[in-house]
Write a protein that binds this DNA or RNA. Structure first.
Lengths: 219, 219, 219, 219
DNA sequence: GATGAATGAGAGTTCATTCAT
DNA sequence: TATGAATGAACTCTCATTCAT
């Protein structure tokens, strides 16, 4: 949590610190990011950073929380616009496509997502992932519950397993395109956006096969 | 790639360096691991490390390759002993349980897996992941192909999507138990081994639902 | 010397600053004590401290003067109650015992005494020691003069040497118990209060031997 | 304890580090002394200091040990030349005078003695004082024991109390001349060397009165 | 009179790498 | 081929003090 000083700061100064810090952490992650660089780029004294945040972890947590919130804020309208009621897995596929496109056009959010997911320092990682996961869950869980209640998922669908998978797959789908070697099979790590989208769709298809109600046979 | 000097080294010296380096990287990851410490623990001069490996990345790649190979070597007999032909998803579940148990009893291999999967330096990450993924694939791909050919999977099963998922899920299942906060839903990050196993089984159940042939209707 | 602003301050505010500063300097000494911490604990703005005192040294001098005065104020009733007239060295021993006990039960006064006696900054040290010594002297000198006049000390006793010794020994006796290694011989630095007292008494015995009148021979 | 690297160092380099460090610590004490300054003045890289000593404490301990040893080495010939057998307290007085003169002409040794005696960091203080005290004791204890055995001290003299006093008084006598305000009574802190000597002699006279055998009455 | 944000030098320590021996 | 001393930039974090409001 930032200090009270931070809250009282002129907006311009806050913005300078935030953008310098985001850039730095996005590029080098938490452990690799340098407060020296952040201060220099933000045009503030090194000591000032410590007037605003208790320590490096505090600053990083603040930023990753911000990024999570921003990503969520950007995605929620998209989600709201999709036809979950009438075509759940169609909507889900659309969401996935939007998700891939989002990170392609939001390098900063992508970089923060990468940093959060790859943070090597255990306690920093635990802290930031927990926060990120809470965001994912509070968006996704109601979606799945409603879907199940409305019959868009199998009656015996294991919603928790579904959520748990999404907690792994969504960051993966976000990160893989920028990390060659991560997905050598489907092409999620291909530089070509269409390949990425195609790959993501094939993953969604698996989820559909697993959770969609069986078609009613006539026989 | 190690230097030619390394290859010519007395086996005892190589072993000393390897075990010191594995211990260090396992504990602190790549970026956090210290060559000073490795040299000291191995009982060799700091300069010698640079006679054996071109730089820190080189040493680390070598070690993670070794770890991947060792893990694969340890798992292959297990895989070979399972009844893939008669009960594919049963065997798959057994494999998953063995996988969880393996990392529980092999802290070094776990730590290397964590380090490989969370490496924040992009180029180091790309290099080590690529290698690890090749190991996964060369073991898993034949398994899935055979299963499909023998009817253990649906005729229209997207094997590549299956593989791609496993490339994400297997490391996740290995790493999550030691990384609190990674899986807040199923309990894969619970300290209790039974919880971990139960959670892993639920993930397998999803794969089964997605890829198992539909039961033949009687009509 | 505090500023005139300080004198005009509401008593409550003064008290807050004093107690925060005493605690801080007692714990970390002068050089190690932090004005940041003092201001925070006192609930006043950092800048305010500089409205009250010219600088850190000024604040510290003020506090050590206060501590000296308080210690003196606490000891004077004890001194007044002792039978100096009838048994000078007995009284002196009692005083020493009380002195040891006093610091054992007054951690703040002890810490300030330690800080004053070990201040590494020469000018700060000179200032605070001078003040402390004046307190010691104005209490002790009359005591010794009276004793000499009344025959409790040898007629040729070098009172100034006596005083000078006390100026060294009293702080030493106060400080040694909390500073392991200071007195490896008599046990003044032992954690056991009884050991400390016994050691202090042996030091007093030396003074007695040096200054007590020789017993009258019978001839 | 210095590292083994330190022992193997060219003598010139060692000398450079030692003299820079002695100067710095002598001037500012342990807590106040700066490794930056030491490295700069010694003309070595900051990192090199940590190849030679494990940390700041290690370096400081090494230097204060050296200073203690040097002071002892300088005083021992003086001590050996004095007529302890025939005139113990005369010799003792001579020693004291020599002691005062020594520090007057050895500013570095004086400064280190001051630093050791006023070190505000408790653990550093404990460590270095312990060492210094051992030096004092191994020189003084045999002297007093012999004196007592030979009848130069009273038969009931409390040798341990004597030693304990010396452990306080000798550093005091060394330090006081350079620390105005320390001895406002006898003049040990006077700038005039003769005053200092006279003051020291009066302190010795107290010890003589306390420990010298009573003159044999004829009657 | 009170505030508290800003400063920037400085702290001790670690690091991967070089290179003369 | 092995050594290990040397490097100096980089790290996070703290500090007493100033001064505009």
């Amino acid at each position: 949590m930032p200090t009270s000083t931070w809250e009282r700061l002129p907006q311009a100064r806050r913005a300078a610190v935030i953008s310098a810090a985001e850039a730095e952490f996005a590029e080098h992650g938490f452990s690799g990011g340098s407060l020296n660089v952040i201060a220099r780029e933000a045009g503030v004294a090194k000591g000032s950073l410590f007037q605003y945040f208790h320590d490096k972890v505090d600053l990083y947590s603040y930023l990753s929380e911000r990024a999570s919130t921003r990503i969520r804020g950007d995605m929620e309208p998209v989600i709201a616009s999709l036809p979950w009621q009438t075509d759940f897995f169609g909507a889900f596929e659309d969401l996935t496509v939007a998700w891939v496109a989002y990170f392609r056009s939001h390098p900063l959010e992508l970089a923060m997502t990468v940093a959060v997911n790859l943070e090597p320092d255990r306690s920093a990682r635990t802290a930031v992932r927990r926060v990120a996961n809470e965001h994912y869950l509070s968006v996704l869980e109601p979606l799945l519950r409603t879907a199940k209640d409305s019959g868009a998922l199998r009656p015996d669908a294991d919603i928790e397993a579904f959520l748990s998978l999404l907690l792994v797959l969504l960051p993966h789908v976000a990160v893989a395109p920028s990390s060659p070697g991560l997905d050598p099979v489907l092409g999620l790590s291909s530089p070509d956006h269409d390949d990425q989208v195609a790959a993501a769709k094939r993953l969604v298809a698996v989820l559909r096969a697993a959770f969609e109600p069986a078609p009613v046979g006539v026989a």
